[in-house]
Design a protein around this nucleic acid. Structure first.
Lengths: 111, 111
DNA sequence: TCCTGTGCTACAAATAACGTAGCACGATGC
DNA sequence: GCATCGTGCTACGTTATTTGTAGCACAGGA
C-alpha cells in the first residue's frame, strides 16, 4: 500500500494531523518507555545509563529514540555533566499525571 | 480459551514484578492505543467498531488485545448492547489524567 | 598512557502492530 | 423460513518497532 504522507518511520507524532494537541500528546506518551522515563526523572537528573538501569535495562536503541523525541517535544533536556532532566514544561507534565500514583495504589487493590 | 490470560504474548504487565503498582500501570498505559482508548471512552460507551473508527482506524487485532488487557485490569467493561465503557475504576483513571488535556494545550504552544 | 564513564549508533533477531479477510452470533427485514 | 445487517472477535501474512549485543568518539582522572 502506498505510504501516505505519514511518511517517515514514526517521526512527527501520530495524530498531530488532527490538530488536537491531546492526540499528539497521547500518542507521544503511548510509546514504550516514554511514560516510564518521565516518571523516573521525577526526583532529578539521571545519566543515560542510570536511566536505562532504572527502566529495567531497556535497550539503548529505544532509550535514545525516546529521549530524542522527548527532547524534541521540549519535555526533557540534556545537561552536560548531569545527564537528562525534565524541563519546566516536562515537570508540568509530570505533575499532570501525578494523581496517577495514588490511583495506581487503589487500582492494585481491586478485587 | 480457558485461561485467556497467561497464554498470549505480552501477558503479565511488565514491571509488575517490582511490586510497585505504578510501574504496572505505566506499562499498561504505555502500550499503543491504550491511553487513546480510555480517552475516547470519556463521553460514554462505544461499540468496538466505533472505537476503532475513533482511534484512527486502528487494526482490530491490537484493539481487541488492548480491550482485553483493559478489561482484565478492571478499567473497561463490555455492556451487551452498548459496547465498551469505562468502569467506575476506569473513570477514576480518566479523571486522574484529565489535567493532561489542559497541559496539552500549553504544550502545543511551546516555541 | 591506560582506565573509566558519558552520550550515542549499527546490526541482526525477536516481538508487536498493521491490514485484510473472515467467523459465529443476534436482531431485524422480507 | 432466509437474507440481510451489525456486533464482538480471530487468522494470517506483511510491515514496523523493540530488543540485545557490540561498539564508536569523546572527556576526565590516575
Amino acid at each position: 500500500m502506498p505510504k501516505p504522507a505519514a511518511t517517515t518511520k514514526q517521526r512527527a507524532v501520530r495524530g498531530s494531523r488532527t490538530g488536537r494537541p491531546i492526540m499528539a500528546l497521547l500518542d507521544l506518551l503511548g510509546r514504550r518507555w516514554t511514560l516510564r522515563i518521565v516518571w523516573e526523572l521525577r526526583d532529578g537528573p539521571l545519566t543515560s545509563r542510570a536511566l536505562r538501569t532504572a527502566c529495567d535495562d531497556a535497550s539503548p536503541t529505544v532509550m535514545q529514540a525516546r529521549l530524542s523525541e522527548l527532547r524534541e517535544a521540549g519535555l526533557v533536556e540534556l545537561v552536560s555533566g548531569d545527564g537528562y532532566r525534565l524541563t519546566p514544561l516536562g515537570r508540568e507534565l509530570l505533575e499532570s499525571f501525578l494523581p496517577l500514583h495514588r490511583f495506581a495504589e487503589r487500582w492494585s487493590r481491586r478485587s
